[in-house]
Amino acid sequence: MRLKVIWSALRLVVLSVVVLGLGYNLLIVGIGQAAFSGQANGSLVKHHGHIVGSRLIGQQFTSARFFEGRPSATSPPYNASSSAASNYGPTNPALLKEIRTNLAAVLEENPGVKASQVPPDLVESSASGLDPDISPAAAYLQVPRVARVNHLPVATVRDLVAKHVSGRFIGLYGAPHVNVLELNLALLELAKH
């Protein structure tokens, strides 16, 4: 009797592996590759035939001519093969030090901006370390700098940001956000003309 239970257990494990681990997985791979091949492969973005990243994965933009993303706690920042958050507790001195450093950098790079205008997402690091988005406020704050460095009118760059603000999903869910990579690609096109 006891031996029979073990055999039944083994058979159910093997059956589950075949049906659920392999069958179900490959079915979704097949459907994904056939119907949503862009998404299933990582929403990769091409620019002049060259893969410049994924729409869904943030990158570190350090040059003043580009819009910057959020601070990233991965090592090195925006390490897309090892997602991570800082995990700093809300009163951890390391968190407060980091916020002071990030805030000072934002204020220095964007002269004329006051600390009260800086939204938290621009100085606090994201949960995945790979957040592809910033809040609309964080994007608008960078407009004067980006316009100046790229020799573009402020109003034009502001319009560009406005066009790239994604609202809530069907007006209901989530928070408004701006995809940094897409915004920077559009900026490149704009600067060319």
């Binding site: 998404q39 299933a40 492969n41 990769l44 090892s82």
Partner: peptide, 28 residues
């Protein structure tokens, strides 16, 4: 998957010298 969830057996994607000199290995 339709919303952007990755589903592939093809291994990581590599990005070399993109817009800002960015180089990334993207786990998939």
């Amino acid at each position: 998957v339709g919303q952007g969830g990755v589903q592939t057996l093809a291994g990581p994607a590599h990005v070399h010298d993109a817009l800002n000199g960015v180089t990334q290995t993207i786990a998939r």
